[in-house]
């Protein structure tokens, strides 16, 4: 058993943090956004051979810095391109929410809700029913027959759009039966990397608050010396570390039936709680638009909504431990 970073993993994390501290400081949220993508590609963030632990570390750092590039959206779809033997055409995204698409006469029809980063990516991975099973297609957001309708959400740095496809030509990436397991892998990666991102978001919110609590003076002392403040932040720390441990566990043991659900639930909760406690500790300044903290809180709300929109992780854990829920009276 060794649940700590190897020296290489520690280096990866340190390099990611140095890079993001330099490129995406809180004072300039998205200044270099356009230049970031080629830099990420060049420095290996999109390397298809990155293991789950390495990805989780990058996702954590990207959440901590609120990396303004479609890295999460792209990385979760990497297995599709790898399985298809295709090059990534640039930043991509994949369908994640509700909706359904079908293939009729070789053309795509249907709708997909809340596709993250749909406008900024080069290609959208769309799952469509062929009649013989699911297939995965690459669809260009500007292709004829594609309509994108912006979907309001809490997070201004991570936008989403509803996608409607009418008679669209897509490029076939994976057909049945190969597509289904790869799609499941995409879903798993989406959840794991979102949870890791949540840990980074929670960590950064707590850093803002601790820094403020060390320096803001009221009643003649730094407010962090008041136990009501110190204990609240200590509770946040306990939440973040538990979530971090669960994310590492899920990265190391993907086959445990509860692992991803535990990580998802605890990380989303830690991010929201830390965001809320941090805002409280920062007082009036914490609720202003100028103070950057709300951007992390908004990402926490986005993560929470993502969890709420999917199957309930706590129900899934209960089912893994106690068996499926049966209605009283049924055998």
């Amino acid at each position: 058993m060794d649940l700590s970073l190897t020296p290489t993993q520690a280096d990866i994390r340190a390099a990611a943090r140095r890079y993001l501290d330099d490129r995406c400081p809180p004072s300039r949220p998205a200044e270099h956004a356009a230049e970031l993508w080629p830099e990420l590609v060049r420095t290996g963030w999109l390397d298809p051979d990155l293991g789950a632990v390495e990805l989780v570390l990058l996702a954590e750092e990207s959440g901590r810095a609120l990396l303004p590039a479609p890295w999460w959206a792209t990385t979760r779809a990497v297995p599709v391109y790898r399985a298809a033997g295709a090059e990534l055409p640039g930043p991509v995204t994949s369908v994640d929410g509700t909706g359904s698409c079908v293939v009729r006469d070789g053309r795509l029809h249907g709708r997909c809700n809340a596709v993250v980063d749909a406008r900024t990516c080069a290609e959208i991975v769309v799952a469509a029913d062929t009649g013989d099973g699911v297939a995965l297609f690459g669809v260009r957001p500007d292709a004829p027959g594609v309509t994108l309708t912006d979907r309001p959400g809490p997070d201004l740095l991570r936008t989403a759009a509803d996608l409607v496809l009418t008679d669209v030509v897509g490029r076939l990436l994976l057909g049945p039966p190969a597509a289904a397991p790869v799609l499941a892998e995409v879903t798993r990666r989406s959840a794991l990397l979102a949870a890791a991102e949540g840990v980074g978001v929670a960590t950064r919110a707590l850093e803002f608050a601790a820094e403020h609590a060390r320096t803001r003076v009221q009643f003649g002392r730094p407010i962090g010396a008041f136990q009501a403040v110190g204990h609240a932040l200590a509770e946040c720390y306990a939440d973040v570390e538990a979530a971090r441990s669960l994310v590492y566990r899920a990265a190391c043991a993907p086959d445990l039936p509860d692992a991803a659900h535990c990580a998802t639930w605890s990380a989303a909760r830690a991010a929201a709680r830390c965001g809320e406690t941090a805002i409280q500790v920062c007082g009036g300044m914490g609720v202003t638009w100028e103070f950057p903290l709300h951007r992390w809180y908004r990402r926490a709300l986005w993560l929470e909504a993502r969890v709420a929109a999917g199957p309930d992780p706590v129900d899934a854990i209960a089912a893994a431990l106690l068996g499926p829920e049966t209605v009283e009276g049924t055998p």
């Binding site: 058993m1 649940l3 570390e241 538990a242 441990s245 669960l246 509860d258 535990c262 706590v314 129900d315």
Partner: peptide, 22 residues
């Protein structure tokens, strides 16, 4: 069921935090 599952999350979070500390 819900409270039992939540306790499981707490337990696994603490257990693996202990492994990290070790």
């Amino acid at each position: 069921r819900r409270e039992f599952a939540e306790l499981h999350v707490e337990l696994e979070g603490l257990r693996h935090t202990g492994y990290r500390a070790l």
